[in-house]
Design a binder for these strands. Structure first.
Lengths: 347, 347
DNA sequence: ATGAAAGCGCTAACAT
DNA sequence: ATGTTAGCGCTTTCAT
């Protein structure tokens, strides 16, 4: 029950060395699996270290070797997708031989503070799932150390950006709906939210490519379920056969109202979201959506950070991953239109 | 563009000292706000430190002073509530003058690995939102360093436990439903999940207290939305007027199926969840639920960890916080029952 | 109030 | 293969 107390003696390299009857240098070699120790010595040192419950002190180790091999990660505890990204980062960092230092953004702890904590830890690079820092702040930070911004666009060439190709995501979405026979496809917009402009643009391009530009219709939406519910009412007034939506939360709000109004999804309206968040996967929501490839994003982010740390030349500051269409139950073939069509979008 | 590279010179205390024309000891004093420097010196040192962008190296600092003042935190990226807890821990730790070291559990990174990382960081105590470690493993860990287990019950007196009073949570839930006139109240169980036994017990006790034990009905559920959906079908076969549910995720799955079957909530069935996670707060879910007091939990956890670190005597190894009933839209008065009642739960 | 010097636990360079 | 030594950036005596 004698728990470790503040200032209590810890087992050190020297303790192990003494007990094993060798020098500390040798123990160090063994602990690091570095060459330069006989098999017998290795064996004995390991044995003693085990008995003593020795744990190398990362701080001392890194203080001495000058490097930390530490990647600082700033994420938000609120964002479910950040959890997926953190998961991927751990895996990617391990493969690259780096450790992660996590620093969370909370309602009371902003990005600045989170970053400051990681600086004091002597991270060699920062991977930031940025939310509230201005582009200027990010640029300033990038001048001090390698910075990779995940899932957000920043136009500074000194800032590395790894993000999903949202534009292409909407191409996929529209293509899918057109293939199902839809022509009257609306887009529920995300306003000024990050990514919104890209998605809107993708929607417009795809509609144009299919010769449906005349029927392109962008409806003001937002980022939350409530925004989706509000927009639903506008949509119901002049119903398209399908709608692409800024994100899954908005799509979910839309779904609630549409279904509540007695309409069948996808029979009367196909709905296609964006993000593939946990919500979309729920059985009773079962939303067709455009997903981001968390694994690709995180692997690229780590690779880029490591390239910068190790001084390798880098060609493009922006890395863009392909989106994936996740087919679920809210999109289906357009119903043989019994009535006449409203005034838009038919060729 | 001259980013920090591996092994590149960092600004050190010595740099600041030289530039300010004082000794490193003095700079150290100033940086730590320790007594023993004149106001002028303080001013100048701060100024120079600012110009040079000096950031103290936490590793070196703590290596020398022997203490890390670091609280290790193990949490899961999947659990939304863990995010709330991390938020609270940051605030509580800051007040106590400690820092947090975060280590996440992910699908590929178990509790063991998360803990090992924190040991190497020389955390002085661990606060663990435990999921998969056995009681034995936790006990072993507690023998090595102060350990606080958050939101889970462990019966080892050497392990400090801080948790919500789940039993009482279900008392509140049942009392509320009974007040609304419900008598046929079922409980959708969480199986072997942590907390499940407590909640089941609380349900049974409250039913008994209200003289409804004959009608107490525990339905096998689980921990996910899918489990809730499955159980919903069983529930529909013999519908109670209300149901308390192991957690909000299960309740959400249940809601989807129940509403999908054309039933009205709370008109035909009142549903009461547990956790008050972000899901429950969504407008279209709007789940009445039992919430845990994240702030109280985290403050107690930090205080307990610090007490152990600083060797203060502690009386109770278990700290239990009161739950809160969060009233939303899925519970309502029992409908005047037009038909006859099924075979259970009427006095 | 200020400075000199020792040393935290470890690794790296250089001996042997 | 093994040991010796120096020193990472900082805090902490102990002088002055």
């Amino acid at each position: 029950m004698a728990s470790q107390r503040a200032g209590m003696p810890r087992v050190t390299l020297a303790d192990v060395a003494e007990r094993a009857g060798v020098s500390t240098a040798l123990v160090s070699i063994v602990m690091r699996d570095a060459p330069g120790a006989s098999p017998q010595t290795r064996e004995r040192v390991r044995q003693v270290a085990g008995e003593l419950g020795y744990q190398p002190d990362r701080r001392a180790r890194l203080l001495r070797s000058g490097r930390t091999r530490l990647l600082g990660v700033v994420f938000s505890v609120q964002h479910a997708f950040h959890g997926d990204l953190v998961t991927g980062l751990y895996a990617a960092a391990e493969k690259a031989g780096y450790e992660l230092a996590l620093s969370a953004i909370t309602p009371q702890r902003d990005e600045q503070r989170a970053v400051a904590g990681l600086m004091a830890e002597r991270c060699e690079a920062l991977i930031v799932m940025s939310l509230d820092s201005s582009a200027a702040q990010l640029s300033e930070l990038a001048a001090r150390m390698p910075l990779v911004v995940l899932t957000r666009n920043v136009r500074d060439p000194d800032v590395d950006v790894v993000r999903n190709d949202d534009r292409r995501g909407l191409h996929l979405a529209v293509d899918h709906l057109v293939e199902l026979g839809h022509r009257r496809i609306a887009h529920l917009d995300g306003g000024r939210a990050p990514g919104s402009a890209e998605r809107r643009r993708g929607y417009r391009e795809a509609m144009e490519r299919h010769g449906l530009e005349a029927g392109a219709r962008v409806v003001a939406g937002g980022v939350t379920e409530a925004d989706g519910a509000t927009a639903a009412r506008e949509l119901l007034a002049d119903l398209p056969t399908a709608v692409t939506v800024f994100n899954d939360r908005v799509a979910t709000g839309l779904l609630g109202v549409v279904r509540g109004a007695g309409l069948d999804v996808p029979g009367d309206l196909s709905v296609l979201g964006f993000d593939d968040d946990r919500l979309a996967r729920l059985g009773y929501i079962d939303l067709t959506t455009v997903g981001q490839d968390a694994q690709a994003l995180t692997e690229l982010a780590v690779r880029r950070a490591v390239d910068r740390i190790e001084g390798r030349p880098v060609t493009h500051p922006h890395l863009v991953t392909p989106p994936q269409l996740v087919l679920r139950g809210t999109t289906g073939p357009v119903r043989a239109d019994p009535g006449r069509m409203s005034g838009w979008g038919d060729a």
